[in-house]
Design a protein around this nucleic acid. Structure first.
Length: 566
RNA sequence: GACCCCAUCGUCUAGCCGGGUCCAGGACGCCACCCUUUCAAGGUGGAGACACGGGUUCAAAUCCCGUUGGGGUCACCA
């Protein structure tokens, strides 16, 4: 039975607390989105706040660039935070800040705060130092495992007389452990209901590491209290951590926030969506192609060789991207940035993510963040894990692009190109770009795909490679009927006084009618001549984008090349 | 292995709390046909699920128990 303990008198404060070890993961994005929607939406009233905190207590893995990346990813998704690190968004607004004076928001800068509470727990006997080394603990774990026992810390440090413990603390490296209570811990979860963890299920865990940094468990509890967090929405993988947190809240006389654990998101094959997925799919292709060195020398030969053999190894992100481009595959998207690069719209990503583990009901499934804010609530969060269906996401993106005006599409596409394919903008005039944008918009699923279908316009005539099957089908078939048509078309087109999509189109339909030919017999040979394949935007636009001179040049080149070869 | 969570079409889900209106609704995908100058898009139609077994009840997708299946957690990571 779910127990909602929302205190109506105090404003809702939620938080998203990523550790800065890379770009924002897609699962994290959903968590952030839901936290944001809950705090900023109708459920929370006027004064709800969404807070962003950076959990950088793992010094080895955290980085400043990752922090920045995460902030930018959030801003791109349209998720803005009230409290937290500041970021000047692309629209000039400053996100974050410390209006309530509850910062700093980087845990590494809050060590003294944590120490204060550690001190308090030590004083009341709810925490104690322990001196075992990592190796000793590993050995104990292994031993337990060998006997098919579940390992739990044996409280060996508590056997040491208190006076001695205190003395050793001053001179010896040690960790601080939290003493779990001798009673079952109840976790009230708004999604899952009440969950009971019996005594002995949770052992005395470490709250301060040998290096003096708090562990996640401790820092999160202290910060959530001090920052006034009222509702914690997070992934179900944290459910088993919650009794630790609740126990510490009781020991420290903190308030217990409302918990809502959300279902997890997986790949279609049931595996976890992991950053390693990218390395995995790339490794597969490299093996298939029999590479022994990184194509284009993206990484050292030795690094590449060992990466190829070891499933657990990951290459630098930039190297992965470069090699993928070189071998011509699309990497599976797992980070928000991947989807951005992949040409997905942020509003589509948010919409799709919202449907994983939550639903507004009423058969509604296309909506924006405003709607989400308005309607998001805890009771409608699901309990069952979801698989991330990229095909459906793609369909959503396609629909969104299809519903856009040409002008809006051109604007968005321009922005995307500027970031990921600047060459497109360099090689096309504004006018060409607009024509192209309008031509590809209805037939493209992503902005990246749009860039791909623009390739024919970017390359020079010499770079066109004629696709064998297309040539056979459209040009050579029927004693070279296509080639003959092409030859006649060249004359017709050369004679056109104006060369727009409309005039070209009219000329072509007239031509087809006069020869009693279907439009396919006219357009397809042209497509092959101009692009190398039978696939292109509508034929009128295709010619207009190239312009008359280029069109004629490509026809000439095609005629001479293909005629010569047969 | 121990503990915890979950269980509706291939996938995301609605329905479940307050049993009847559900021979289970929507979406993506799939199949067929139509349209068509390519690729798309669009139109029409179709196949497709309450994991299983027991209860409770006049009545169960909805409540209870068990089984099976899936997932999570068991770090000086977060």
């Amino acid at each position: 039975m779910s127990t909602t303990t929302t205190n109506q008198s105090s404003p809702v404060i939620t938080r998203f607390a990523p550790s800065p070890t890379g770009h924002l993961h897609i699962g994290g994005a959903r968590t952030a989105l839901f936290c944001w929607a809950f705090a900023k939406g109708a459920q929370a009233g006027e004064d709800g706040r969404f807070l962003l905190r950076i959990e950088d207590t793992d010094q080895a893995r955290s980085s400043e660039s990752a922090t920045r990346g995460i902030l930018e990813d959030l801003a791109w998704l349209g998720i803005d935070w009230d409290d937290g690190p500041e970021l000047v968004a692309e629209d000039g607004r400053t996100l974050g800040g410390d209006a309530r004076g509850v910062g700093p928001f980087f845990q590494a800068q809050r060590i003294d705060v944590y120490d204060q509470y550690i001190e308090q727990l030590l004083k009341i006997g709810r925490a104690y130092p322990a001196f075992e080394t990592t190796e000793e603990l590993d050995a104990k774990r292994a031993a337990a495992r060998a006997q098919k026992q579940t390992y739990r810390y044996d409280r060996a440090a508590l056997e040491i007389p208190e006076a001695e413990r205190t003395a050793r603390m001053k001179s010896e490296p040690h960790v601080i452990r939290f003493k779990m209570p001798d009673a079952a811990v109840h976790v009230c979860d708004d999604v899952l209901g009440d969950v009971r963890f019996d005594v002995g299920e949770v052992d005395d865990f470490i709250i301060r590491k040998r290096d003096g940094f708090p562990t996640y468990h401790f820092a999160v509890v202290v910060d959530d209290e001090l920052m006034g967090v009222t509702h914690i929405l997070r992934g179900q993988e944290h459910l088993n951590n919650t009794p630790r947190h609740v126990a510490m809240q009781e020991a420290l006389d903190f308030r217990t926030p409302v918990y809502a654990h959300m279902p997890l998101i997986f790949n279609m094959d049931g595996s976890k969506m992991s950053k390693r997925d990218k390395d995995k799919s790339l490794r597969l292709v490299c093996k298939e192609k029999g590479f022994e060195q990184a194509p284009n020398g993206a990484v050292d030969d030795s690094v590449f060789a060992s990466w190829l053999k070891d499933k657990k190894q990951q290459l630098e992100t930039s190297a992965v991207v470069e090699i993928a481009r070189e071998v011509g595959i699309d990497l599976p998207e797992v980070d928000v940035e991947d989807f951005r690069r992949g040409g997905y719209l942020p509003e589509v990503l948010c919409n799709f993510l919202s449907l994983l583990g939550w639903s507004p009901g009423d058969d509604i499934e296309k909506f924006d963040n405003e709607f989400l804010k308005e309607r998001f609530d805890l009771p409608r969060i699901g309990k069952t894990n979801a698989k991330f269906d990229r095909v459906k996401l793609l369909a959503f993106n396609n629909d969104a692009l299809g519903a856009m005006s040409d002008a809006e599409f051109a604007r968005r596409w321009r922005e995307w190109c500027a970031r990921y394919e600047p060459g497109v903008l360099e090689k096309l005039s504004d006018e060409q770009f607009s024509i192209l944008a309008a031509a590809v918009r209805p037939r493209t699923k992503t902005l990246r795909e749009a860039a791909r279908s623009a390739e024919f316009a970017l390359m020079s005539a010499e770079q066109i490679e004629f696709d064998e099957k297309s040539v056979e089908k459209a040009l050579l078939n029927g004693d070279g009927a296509g080639l003959n048509v092409l030859g006649e078309l060249r004359v017709t087109l050369a004679a056109l006084p104006t060369f727009t999509a409309d005039t070209v189109h009219t000329a072509l339909t007239d031509f087809a009618a006069s020869r009693e030919l279907g439009m396919g017999k006219v357009a397809q040979p042209l497509r092959v001549a101009l692009t190398g394949s039978t696939i292109s935007p509508p034929i009128g636009e295709t010619l207009a984008i190239l312009g008359k001179d280029e069109t004629l040049a490509r026809i000439d080149r095609c005629l001479s090349k293909i005629s010569a070869s047969c």
